[in-house]
Structures are given as C-alpha cells and as structure tokens.
Amino acid sequence: MNDKTDRTDQAIDSGRREFIGVAAGVGAAMVAPGVILHAVAATPRSQPVSSDVRWGLLVDTAKCADGCSACVEACNEENGLNLQTKPERESDLKWDAQKSVWIRKVKLQDNQTGRITNLPMMCQHCEHPPCVDVCPTGASFKRADGIVMVDRHLCIGCRYCMMACPYKARSFIHDELQGQLTAVPRGKGCVESCNLCVHRRDYGEASTACVDACAAEGHHAIVFGDLKDPNSPINQKLRELPSRQIREDLELNTGVRYSGV
C-alpha cells in the first residue's frame, strides 16, 4: 500500500467521522421512510432515583368541577392514550370497558347527607402497594421515590395486580397498538396505570400533565410535589387543608391524598 492510498483512506475515515458527528447533533434525522429520530432537548437523569423524595398528589375536591375532564384528557394526550382506536367489529360497550384509562372522574355520595363529591381517581402510589405484592414476575414495582410502575418487559399479562388494586386503577392492553409515544412505550398484553408522568420526573420537570391542565382551566384542584419536603407546595397545602386517603382502612399509606372527602 503506497502513501497516496494511505492518505485517501485517512480522508475517507475523517469524512465518515465528521458525517457521524453532524448526524448525531441534529434535532431530527430521517433514518428510513416514515421513521424519524427525535433528539430530546432536556437533560435526562444522571443520578439514581433516591428515597430522599416521595412524589405525590393532593386533590382539593372542593375545586374539582363537575363535568370537567381536563385532567383525563391531558393524561390521555401526555401518554398516548388518545391514540387508541376501537378495533373493527368491537361493540362500543366492550370498547368502553376495555380501553386503557389512567385517570377517571368519579362521584362519591355521602349516604347520610346525600352530598356528592367529584374527584379524579388514578393509581394511588401506595407505600405498601398490593399490586407489587401479588405480581409473580416483579413487573409491578415501586421506585425509591415512591412511584409505582409496571415493567412491560416483565409483565406476562396475568392481571393479578388488577385484581389486587382496591382503586381499579390499572388497565390491560388487549389489542395491538396503532400508535404510541416514544417517551411512553406501551404494548399488547401488558398492564399499565398512572406513573405520575415519570418521563417528566426523569428529565427534571416540576409538574404532571393533570396538574398543568387543571391549572390551565383555572381550577387548581391538583397539587404535585415531594411529600418528604416540608417546604414543598404539596406539604404547604396539606398543612392548610384537612385531607384523607381513599380506603384508609387498608393502611397502604397512599401517595395521593384528597381534601373535602
């Protein structure tokens, strides 16, 4: 091999490295027909999840408006649930019963006074989650920061967790998905539920989709924050408002609290 060949090879290698560097730095690159890779502007988590924090929600039911579904719609859009499509030949009744729902609006009625309370119901992110206890594969787990999640790679679809959850907070994906978001991977045969917008947590964002949507509607009924930080917004509100857990008798120490119930 002569010097001219060596110089040519070096030039080709240099050009390849330059091209790779440029391609890695662009915001979006077309890698195949119809496929686009998007770069994320925010910086992802660089440190392990810590038990120094415990994420939770406080819902002020006095501010939760009857007929408002802003939190539900925002959750659906944030997590790609709005991309669900009803399979052909499936009845509306069956579809309504089986489609994934991470937040649902419910009404509670006091049997003595008849008073009706509106509230959003989602995974309660228990300190002692029954779904984790019954899962045979470890797919249901609780992170160090208190967020209860499902590992879709370990989930075998047995749905024991759905039976164990006293809040009916989990959904099962029955059909092939037509669309999903990169930040929120989902899959047929897996169980899923509210994860407190964990993708936001891991990119250092300070809120959740439901909280943002409720605030945008002017209700400000949902507060998110660190239950272990005495100065966090959620703890400031908890000092102002009497609150309780749904099904306190189960002693699950939920991460979601409600006032006015």
Rank of each mutant, 00 (worst) to 15 (best):
D133T: 15
R200P: 03
R200V: 10
G255Y: 02
K94Q: 03
S46G: 12
R45S: 12
C123H: 01
R143C: 01
S69Q: 10
L37H: 07
P87E: 05
S232I: 00
D151Q: 14
V191K: 00
L119Q: 03
E192M: 13
C126D: 09
C161D: 15
Q180T: 02
Y167W: 08
Q124T: 06
G21F: 14
I20V: 06
G67D: 14
V35Y: 15
N253P: 04
R16T: 15
G179F: 09
T137R: 05
R89W: 14
G114A: 11
A29D: 11
G67T: 10
A183L: 15
G146M: 11
K4C: 04
T117Q: 08
Y258L: 07
S171C: 01
V40M: 14
S50F: 11
R7T: 10
H153A: 14
C214W: 00
V184L: 10
E176N: 14
W95A: 01
K237C: 11
I12R: 11
S50Q: 15
G189W: 09
E205V: 09
E90R: 14
A41K: 07
A206H: 06
P185R: 07
V35D: 15
R186K: 15
K105L: 02
R257L: 07
S207L: 01
R115S: 12
N195E: 06
V26A: 11
G25F: 04
S259F: 01
P120Y: 02
P48F: 06
G25Q: 03
S243F: 11
T254R: 06
A183I: 05
G27T: 13
V26N: 07
D175R: 01
G80S: 02
S14F: 06
M122A: 11
A28D: 10
Q84E: 14
N231S: 00
N2E: 02
N76L: 00
K107T: 12
N111E: 09
H128V: 14
G157K: 12
M163I: 14
K4P: 05
A42E: 15
N2G: 13
V150C: 04
T61C: 11
E18W: 09
V35L: 15
L250V: 01
W55D: 00
L227W: 00
A65D: 08
